[in-house]
Design a protein around this nucleic acid. Structure first.
Lengths: 268, 268
DNA sequence: CCAATAGTGTCTGTAAGACAATATGGG
DNA sequence: CCCATATTGTCTTACAGACACTATTGG
């Protein structure tokens, strides 16, 4: 659109306008990309090869370009850093982090996003050559960081150590967003490939919440929620399964997005 | 904190760093400040005296300064534009709007916020001299704008007309945020001065949702939710009331923040 | 027949929806 | 006493929580 043309006097104003009259910021997007690996919730981190925070693990992300929106930048980073060509999962804005001093180089505000995707490819050698890895969320010890002001955690063998910038905070917020969204949306299905079994779907809740919802009640909730999942024609026995046991029915995602009333997680 | 000192090689890197290597943005905060006036949900808009969008109504807001966070900027604008000295209400970040072209001057991302406050002062002559007014949300005709792509609404006598920038979208998102937050939080109490009656509190729900929850069920929910409200010592008859009728009990806000399970609004 | 996993049935408690009844103040 | 508003009570229904039971495959 070119709305300025319809507002009298504005073109002349814009012609004379000096864009340096205001403080200048860099704007980045950072992504918390979640998936389920080996029954655990995992997040993609990249190992920083450059300053600042060289050698630290960080959320993938990058600068927003002059001609793209934050959402477009997030999709671009998703492709570049996670090697996702056509993204079928879920992507949404989380929150914007703007504390002065969060980046030692200059004033940077970061528009954080959350992505959920089924079982993405391994190390993702693509991108701009930084090492990338899936980290089980449970191995990052995020929760205790919220209690009070303990000394900053140092790197520990086999773990990611402190994250770069304020990414530990962003990741904690992203986690809480995902956990709570499973309560009142159908987003859990974004974590798995189609077709899936109800056990697969329940495993998502178990991985994200750390506690599995009651089997029977879970099935009742999912199956009685209009168009949460749609059943496929009867399946052959799942080939990859651990053999024995009754073969499960297969489902695909339905068009429902909200759960009314929500499926609440309980304290473990 | 000065974390750079603890990371080897980083001080030298920062010394040589050129902050102009990345696209530069202006960053603003915009505020959707809601209150209840005459039983209706109202939002504060300012009349723009300068280009761009001169003569249009807009959400109050302004540029984030070089040394403040977005939240600090929002509090500052709240004081400057709404004349609020000590703000007792609720303020939270909504979402960030970053479409290129949303501001004809230059690349601007806006970190939108939502504020809820009890019965704020009238025209708010303060601030940088722009006219400010409370507008009943119902007079802005926001909802139909979501259905399809109709031609942009023109200014109508007695109404605010089209809003500046993408503020109609921001306001619509802010509205939905507030409406849904009343369902699962105790934020409704942020809209009214203490002490208040349960009728006052119910009137908040009626104003925000457009439909009043059932009287008896509402009281049961509020009173059985631990520490949602706390009762005061018995009141003298409310002086300002419309006379007759049984005098109500008075309450203050409790410490509870969440409603479990939520109080759902129903389709009208 | 046994193991293992998938799927169903049912009882119970909590709380919401609907609506009726009672309480307490001022003319 | 009448009116207006506040407050309480109760019946019904929906649904989550808990847990036991049945079904269907492979060995």
């Amino acid at each position: 659109m070119s709305p300025a043309r319809s507002r009298p006097g504005e073109p002349e104003f814009l012609h004379a306008y000096d864009p340096h009259a205001f403080p200048s910021f860099a704007v980045t997007v950072d992504l918390a990309i979640f998936t389920i690996r080996a029954g655990e919730l995992a997040v993609l981190l990249v190992h920083r090869r450059d300053h600042p925070y060289r050698g630290y693990w960080a959320l993938p992300g990058g600068f927003v370009r002059a001609t793209e929106s934050a959402m477009q930048a997030a999709r671009r980073e998703l492709a570049e850093e996670a090697g996702v060509t056509e993204f079928t999962g879920h992507l949404e804005q989380l929150q914007t982090y703007s504390d002065p001093g969060r980046d030692p180089r200059m004033r940077v505000v970061s528009i954080a996003h959350v992505a959920l995707a089924p079982h993405l490819p391994e190390p993702v050698a693509g991108g701009d050559a930084a090492e990338a890895r899936w980290w089980p969320v449970s191995s990052l010890h995020l929760e205790p960081a919220q209690t009070g002001d303990q000394p900053p955690r140092q790197a520990v063998a086999g773990e990611a150590g402190r994250l770069a910038f304020d990414h530990a905070q962003i990741l904690a917020d992203a986690l809480e967003r995902v956990r709570s969204k499973l309560e009142y949306t159908t987003l859990a299905a974004s974590f798995i490939d189609e077709p899936f079994t109800l056990s697969d779907l329940r495993a998502v809740y178990a991985a994200v919440w750390g506690t599995a919802p009651d089997l029977a009640n879970f099935r009742r909730k999912v199956l009685t929620t209009e168009d949460f999942v749609v059943q496929q024609r009867r399946s052959a026995a799942a080939a990859a399964g651990p053999a024995g046991g009754r073969p499960p029915l297969l489902y695909r995602r339905g068009n429902a997005t909200m759960l009314h009333p929500p499926m609440l997680r309980l304290p473990p």
